[in-house]
Design a binder for these strands. Structure first.
Length: 523
DNA sequence: GGATCCGTTGTAGCT
DNA sequence: AAGCTACAACGGATC
């Protein structure tokens, strides 16, 4: 019998996977460790990862993911996943104490938001007092080491693809093949697991009432609405989706390019994104960003393909940019003391407008369709997010971007603090990125340019705004302009069965442009 | 150092 | 009906 004396706790903060998991790889390759305890902490007050506000879609996704992770660990490695509920800064030291001096290491993944950094700093301090080493793994969910890069003397806040090219080249290196992104780690062969230790934890007085069982986890997702289940959480689904959307479609990767109009979803399935739909998996660490990068590289190898910023890899680069900025720009999620946020005198909080926007009752079918899709599924196409955030802020409603940001953070299944704030700063026109404020998205893209797109978008609206299901495409973007006979035959009277537009879109655009300009000139 | 260019994805209106 | 032009007009990079 092996005497267990040297234990590593592998605390997975925002990495819900076994593949390309540097923590598990490190822990399972050390000769000076006898056992590994995989650990997850669910903090009801902190949300998950860097996401504080969690709506039902993300909550459900998280539960799915934990069940999958737990099953994967026990199936492939015979290891149980320990899940605790409460505050990490209390629970980690309690767990260490429960194991009577056997814990030598606490490993975790780096999370870059201020609260998460503060949390790990405190834990590091209290573990030092207990003689336990803490090891924080950088670049677990990013290509770049965020901390090292933002501390580099040469680092300047990136604002464009060009700036990112400089940073990626400097940090990773580059060849004719592209940036030297590290390859995903090889699958680990075994995890040194010790059931007795986990039994100790389960029976620990310190942790009484804090253990979350798999059985409890499994009951939660059942309570969530059915459409919200469109993205099943978990590493298994992430890998499968990567196969379906990327690996088996190299030509899709080669040609990937953001459309110029908001072409949102698969025309044959209003639930299916026209993009990869991998964001929920990336945001929770169910999918390794390096694995996605590698599969894109393979798909493009030897083929003609699009380049950043348009390409799929280009999208990943923007994600890296937001991760860097969210670390280097103080008050990234605020409009004061944020050098990345221009001060704009937004209108007073207008409950009616915000409610109409959130509920998909603005009278603008394209906007409403996307907001209803968000509410039911937790997902919205990237360009749809552009359209609705522009609409809420500088476009039509002149409301502060923070209100929209919070609603997104709560409802999105792929909620991500760095990316969500970054995109709102960008779309509200307050960030110093290339977004001339007078470029306002038309909330009624009536697609004179392409009949194809019109049909897709009209079908999308018919699905999510069923009041308009029988409306002809010609009027579906602005149904209030349809003659009353058309409204009658379509069974939808505007102002009665579906709202009249809450603003005059051209008038509000004109006014808001001038208000925006005034705010800029005041500076 | 002033002019010009350009920015991951614009809009409206005319022909 | 696709393509052009005018709009409105920022701010940093580049020449």
């Amino acid at each position: 019998m092996v005497v267990v004396v040297r234990v590593a706790i592998v605390w997975m903060r925002n990495i819900l996977r076994v593949h390309d998991n540097p923590l598990l790889t490190w822990a399972s390759s050390r000769d000076d460790l006898d056992a590994v305890i995989p650990l997850i902490i669910m903090d009801p007050d902190r949300g998950f990862g860097s996401t504080k506000l969690m709506g039902s879609a993300r909550m459900r996704f998280l539960h799915d993911s934990l069940i999958d992770l737990s099953d994967c660990l026990s199936r492939d490695y015979g290891a149980d996943l320990t899940i605790l509920s409460g505050r990490a800064k209390e629970l980690i030291p309690m767990t260490v104490k429960s194991l009577n001096g056997m814990v030598k290491w606490v490993l975790c993944d780096y999370v870059q938001d201020p609260e998460s950094r503060e949390e790990i700093y405190r834990i590091h301090r209290s573990l030092s007092d207990l003689g336990v080493k803490t090891k924080v793994f950088p670049a677990v969910n990013t290509l770049l080491d965020i901390e090292a890069n933002t501390k580099d003397d040469e680092y300047e806040n990136p604002k464009s693809t060009k700036d990112m090219d400089k940073i990626l080249t400097r940090s990773l290196g580059i060849t004719t093949e592209g940036y030297l992104v590290p390859k995903p780690l090889k699958p680990i062969e075994k995890i040194n697991y010790c059931q007795d230790l986990v039994n100790n934890l389960n029976g620990s007085d310190f942790l009484r009432g804090r253990i979350v069982t798999r059985k409890y986890l499994a009951t939660f997702p059942e309570q969530i609405n059915t459409l919200g289940r469109y993205f099943p959480g978990g590493e298994s689904e992430a890998i499968d989706r990567l196969r379906r959307k990327v690996i088996e479609r190299p030509e899709f990767v080669n040609r990937f390019s953001k459309p110029s109009t908001a072409s949102t979803n698969d025309p044959n399935n209003p639930l299916e994104p026209s993009t990869t739909g991998l964001s929920p998996y990336l945001s929770t660490g169910c999918l390794s960003i390096r694995l996605l990068w590698e599969e894109c590289r393979k798909a493009n190898e030897g083929k003609e393909h699009t380049q950043p910023p348009k390409s799929l890899q280009g999208q990943v680069i923007f994600r890296e940019m937001f991760y860097l900025l969210s670390r280097s720009v103080d008050n990234w999620d605020n409009d004061v003391e944020n050098i990345n946020c221009k001060p704009i005198l937004w209108g007073d909080y207008d409950k009616d407008m915000l409610t109409a926007w959130e509920d998909g009752m603005t009278g603008f079918p394209f906007i409403d369709a996307m907001m209803r899709q968000l509410d039911e599924t937790g997902w919205m196409h990237h360009l749809g997010r552009h359209a609705v955030s522009c609409f809420l802020t500088r476009g039509q409603l002149w409301q502060h971007w923070k209100y929209g940001r919070d609603i997104f953070e709560k409802k999105l299944v792929d909620s991500d603090w760095a990316v969500n704030n970054g995109n709102w700063l960008w779309l509200a026109g307050v960030a110093p990125f290339s977004m001339p404020y007078y470029r306002v998205y038309n909330p009624c893209p009536d697609s004179k340019s392409s009949l194809n797109v019109e049909t897709e978008e009209a079908e999308f609206i018919r699905h999510w705004v069923p009041e308009l299901a029988s409306f002809p495409s010609k009027f579906i973007f602005e149904p209030h302009l349809a003659p009353i006979e058309v409204q009658n035959t379509s069974g939808c009277i505007i102002g009665q069965d579906y709202p009249w537009p809450i603003v005059d879109r051209k008038e509000s655009r004109r006014l808001n442009l001038s208000l925006f300009k005034e705010s800029l000139e005041r500076e």
